[in-house]
Design a protein around this nucleic acid. Structure first.
Length: 504
RNA sequence: GGGUCGUUAGCUCAGCCGGUAGAGCAGUUGGCUUUUAACCAAUUGGUCGAGCGUUCGAAUCGCUCACGACCCA
């Protein structure tokens, strides 16, 4: 049974909409049919770029410059027989000057003056500058291209209602410049990450988003069902295991930028679907990945902020100096001066430390998990400037390779900025027997009640048994990256269509 | 899951000591050929998020619910 709503909604009608519909009906009677015949030849930004530098006199004395633009009418000032209006296209705004006597008989009063803010129009004419020096188009042909039935939000205050911004992003994008800029920046950031990896010799791939066994992370998946095959499927929680299968297959440097899905709560940092870049490189190690990450983030700071000092919500993060690198244990000691190194080497002592810090510890936790809990509770949120934390315990790193000298820890790091985890990378576990053992431990945890623990992925073990070269891999959260570089407090501000509860 | 705050005209917001709803913008009508949040004059527009209660009377007080924002777990 489908619960999808197929109800046709009742017509949402208020006086303004009714009046606009009446105008549209009048237009239909004289043949308007949402025409797709107007071809613009110029954009607002192009014209400002070329002609803003010319003075009023230079423009007036030069050969007349004919231009043809289209856009949404955002402002209009009618002054009797002449009007100014502001058209907005995807790059910006341009002012047009419309006079009664240069349009066909009756057009100015019977058509143009009846158009509404929000309508999309095309205009042709010659460039000039107004007395106050604004580049404008003296129009001799103008036409209504698309009638808008719905009124726009306040022309000065824009759209303020946070909920409507998220639910009706198209309206937000029409009226709020800042919102447009955020998503343009997001696109540039993703583009830069992609180019960065391609220049480093990585190959972009696409792996399944519907998994038979959800793997590659510890998280609850979304469940779905394949009707023809009559089998359960899961939306992926990470692409990791498929990307590493490709490394087994001989694609030694691969990456994927796309969505993963986790069936967990919503917050200012969590959306059920989110975007990660994951990349894997054979014959290298996690130190190389930290170097790549540092290089990439410094470039992104330059690209987005134009500086190595990144402002975020009233704070500033320093991307100029080399990123700090310290081990999880050293980090705990540094931020908990009362704790000694010896206490962190012994399970019972570490439990006591956690208890004194009011951290909940389950009986099943080993020393590695206890240390990680202490780290997450007392250190994470204090790591402001970019900081790599290394030497994550094997217990909390089921896919990472153990350190050669100390099998308690893995060759793994996470990157923190502004108290938030931005990236996670490690030397990949390519010992199939060790991996099988780790999967078994995860299954035990799952059977003991940890519903975030991993499944045993037999085919992945088979892939590793064919031999995966030594490989390092990393995931970077794109949404959090964009939040950081666009100074946005909520993940919803950097998602075009964030998940919302259905409006009542 | 818990707490705080919010939801009033298409938009941005007042009103909240309970007495039956206001402004600006947008819209409509009129005026205005270099304005720029244009301006001037007149004017239309509201199940005050939903429901229940208290009261002679509720946008306003109380309770429940919905959605959102922030904080905490």
């Amino acid at each position: 049974m489908s619960e999808t709503q197929n109800n046709v909604p009742e017509v949402d009608e208020n006086k303004i909409i009714a009046e606009r519909r009446a105008k549209l009906n009048a237009l239909r009677e004289i043949g308007h049919s949402y025409p797709n015949t107007f071809r613009r030849e110029n954009t607002s930004a192009e014209l400002h770029g070329k002609y803003d530098g010319m003075s009023k006199e230079e423009l007036a004395e030069a050969e007349p410059v004919r231009v043809k633009v289209a856009g949404r009418m955002m402002l209009r000032r009618i002054m009797g027989k002449a009007s100014f209006a502001t058209l907005q296209d995807y790059e910006g705004r341009i002012q047009i000057y419309v006079t009664r006597d240069e349009l066909p008989e009756g057009f100015y009063n019977e058509q143009f003056k009846k158009w509404d803010l929000g309508d999309i129009v095309g205009a042709e004419g010659t460039l000039f500058k107004t007395n106050t020096g604004e580049l404008s188009i003296h129009v001799d042909h103008i036409e209504l291209i698309t009638k808008s039935i719905r009124p726009l939000p306040d022309k000065f205050h824009g759209l303020q209602d946070q909920e409507v911004k998220y639910r009706q992003r198209y309206v937000d994008l029409i009226v709020n410049e800042e919102s447009r800029e955020t998503f343009i920046m997001r696109s540039k950031i993703v583009q830069h990450v992609r180019n960065f990896l391609i220049e480093k010799g990585f190959m972009e791939v696409e792996t399944p988003m519907m998994h038979v066994i959800p793997g590659g992370a510890t998280a609850r998946p979304f469940n779905t069902h394949h009707n023809a095959l009559d089998m359960p499927l899961y939306l992926r929680i990470a692409p990791e295991l498929y990307l590493k299968r490709l490394v087994v297959g001989g694609f030694e440097k691969v990456f994927e930028i796309n969505r993963s899905f986790r069936n967990e709560g919503l917050s200012t940092r969590h959306n059920p679907e989110f975007t990660m870049v994951e990349f894997y490189s054979a014959y290298t190690d996690y130190h190389q990945l930290m170097d790549y990450t540092e290089e990439l983030l410094k470039e992104l700071a330059e690209l987005t902020v134009g500086s190595t000092t990144v402002p975020y919500q009233g704070q500033e993060f320093d991307f100029g100096k080399p990123f700090a690198r310290l081990t999880m244990k050293d980090a705990i000691l540094q931020y908990n001066p009362d704790v000694t190194a010896e206490q962190l080497d012994d399970l019972e002592a570490a439990r006591e430390v956690a208890k004194s810090l009011h951290i909940k510890i389950e009986d099943s936790y080993g020393l590695g998990k206890v240390l990680t809990e202490i780290f997450e509770e007392t250190v994470e949120e204090k790591l402001m400037d970019p900081t790599f934390i290394t030497e994550y315990p094997a217990e909390v790193s089921p896919l990472a390779r153990r350190n050669d000298k100390n099998p308690f820890i893995t060759d793994r790091f996470e990157l923190f900025i502004g108290g938030r985890e931005l990236a996670n990378g490690f030397n990949e576990l390519n010992d199939a027997e060790d991996q099988a053992e780790r999967f078994r431990a995860q299954v035990e945890a799952k059977e003991a009640g940890d519903d975030e623990a991993m499944h045993y992925d037999e085919d992945y073990i088979t892939a590793l048994e064919h031999g995966m070269p030594p490989t390092a891999g990393e995931g970077i959260g794109i949404d959090r990256l964009v939040m950081l570089f666009t100074d946005k407090p909520s993940i919803r501000d950097v998602l075009l269509f964030p998940h919302m509860r259905p409006a009542s």
